[in-house]
Amino acid sequence: MYSEFIETLFVTGKLAVATTILLFIIGLPVSYMLAFARFRLKILLEALISMPMVLPPTVMGYYLLVAFSPQNGFGKFLEHYFDLRLAFTFEGILIASVVFGLPFMIQPLQNGLMSLPESLREVSYTLGKSKTKTFFRVLLPNIKPSIITGIAMTFAHCIGEFGVVLMVGGDIPGVTRMASIAIYDQAQALNYTVANRYSLILFLISFVLLTIIFSVNKRHKV
């Protein structure tokens, strides 16, 4: 029982860390583009990225389950060419949580970049710095609170994920069983002691992360 407890927490942490890293890498160029580029249909892209904030996770779970199925186009393609099946795998829930975490990373980054004075970029360009250099050396260091917020929000949200993982995860111990699912299982089996232990840990992690976000934002506002 005890090792299963640790194992489940480990899977949860692994998913949250992997999701956060991937989303940070994806989030940087996307938020830069959304903040500074002008193109048609930008509003549609923004709306699409924000969808997970309002969409029931089960909608996403349903679409993924259908997409992953080897009976359908995408799933068949993966199985045929890559011998890969995403339903009930760690990679599968990782994809799900990356997609579902998009707004939690991108919105803070985008807002941070947009709040910087335009002169900052212009001065850097005038001094002969390239766009990439300006982005990494000038812009990013100036939106540290947004970066911290994005990372903490993504991590916290990922730990709290339930619906999608329940639908496409398959509840495999040590692979796709997350703490949030384990709480549900244990409560169902009337093991309140274990459910309590998981719940307390998730409560504390979320509380600490949100406290960090709030304190960072407060300090930088003044």
Partner: peptide, 20 residues
Amino acid sequence: KIVWGENISQTAQFAFSGNA
């Protein structure tokens, strides 16, 4: 190879959708 459905209906749906 085992995946665990939350209840018997979800288990059926895993098989029905071809994911298992």
